[in-house]
């Protein structure tokens, strides 16, 4: 029963919930809690899979009243499969973080060499680098010694307030360590076997993190400056994500405190409730029949 319940919940969390959440528009009004909810869904899905692997064999054998030797063999096999799942996730996370760090270190080295310091226009921003190039572009390079990169094209098209807004946006990414969130979702994506993996969480989280950074920039420089900068720095090819960011920035109250609280409570419940309701009762029975 435990394994069936966890399996059903796991399937819901990995197949149904991401589609629903990715299609929803309410996360635009609580982007940071929505990121936490995405993390809770992903983590709870993994925990459900582990629960099925551990509880399934045990329950089958208990129901069939199998002998002790079969029970211990099944337990060892179940633990081994669970360990493989956890290891695969950890190896993927380690690999993504390692390669991302190396790539950012190389990027930082090159951007430092290419910096046109004389074009900074007196901007006093820690780690600011200016690149040649007419394409208006702004991004940040995370790490222990982070960089905020603007192209000459971006400095040309943006006014002073808009430049401040862009810089505040990038600094919010850096301050809140958004790269770690993205790396963890990328690692999860890569760890899932190819036929089962989905880009939906990755794309949704990326957009939500942009909204979080937009809000930080709007608090510093005003929503109009962020909107203006976003309009000037991107064209229509940037797609629906840009439109969502623009329309919520036009809102007087882009964020809802009540919604944020509900979403956060839901995220915590998602992790805690299955454990309390399903796993703990099973464990108390299973441990009393512990075959090893």
């Amino acid at each position: 029963m435990t394994a069936l319940l966890l399996g059903a919940l796991g399937l819901f969390l990995s197949l149904v919930a991401p589609g629903l959440l990715a299609a929803a528009r309410w996360p635009d009004r609580a982007p940071a809690p929505a990121v936490v909810l995405w993390q809770a869904i992903t983590l709870a899905g993994v925990l459900c899979a582990l629960g099925v692997v551990l509880a399934g064999p045990e329950e089958l054998i208990r129901a069939a009243d199998g002998n002790r030797r079969v029970a211990s063999a099944a337990l060892v096999a179940a633990l081994a499969v669970a360990a493989v799942i956890v290891l695969r996730l950890l190896v993927s996370l380690g690999g993504v973080m390692w390669r991302s760090r190396a790539r950012r270190a190389r990027h930082r080295l090159l951007v430092d060499l290419l910096d046109r310091a004389e074009q900074r226009h007196g901007l006093d921003v820690e780690g600011l680098r200016v690149l040649d190039g007419a394409q208006p572009l702004a991004y940040c390079v995370a790490g222990r010694s982070p960089r905020v990169v603007l192209t000459g094209g971006a400095l040309d098209v943006l006014n002073t307030t808009q430049i401040a807004a862009v810089v505040a946006h990038e600094q919010a990414h850096l301050r809140h360590r958004h790269e770690l969130v993205r790396e963890s979702f990328t690692a999860f994506y890569q760890a899932v076997p190819r036929p089962l993996r989905s880009r939906a969480p990755l794309d949704a989280v990326r957009l939500l993190l942009e909204m979080v950074a937009d809000d930080a920039a709007a608090r510093r420089s005003g929503g109009d400056a962020v909107r203006g900068a976003l309009t000037l720095l991107s064209d229509d090819s940037a797609g629906a994500g840009r439109d969502r960011r623009l329309s919520r920035l036009a809102d007087q109250q882009p964020r809802s405190v009540a919604l944020s609280v509900i979403v956060l409570v839901g995220a915590v419940a998602l992790l805690v409730l299955p454990t309390l309701v399903v796993v703990v009762p099973w464990l108390s029975v299973a441990v009393s029949n512990w075959p090893l």
Binding site: Y139, Y189, E210, A213, S234, G239
Partner: peptide, 14 residues
């Protein structure tokens, strides 16, 4: 996602 990209940028994907 297959290339571990993690350089956040202001505009969406070009």
């Amino acid at each position: 996602p297959d290339q571990d990209a993690a350089l956040a940028h202001f505009v969406g994907r070009l």
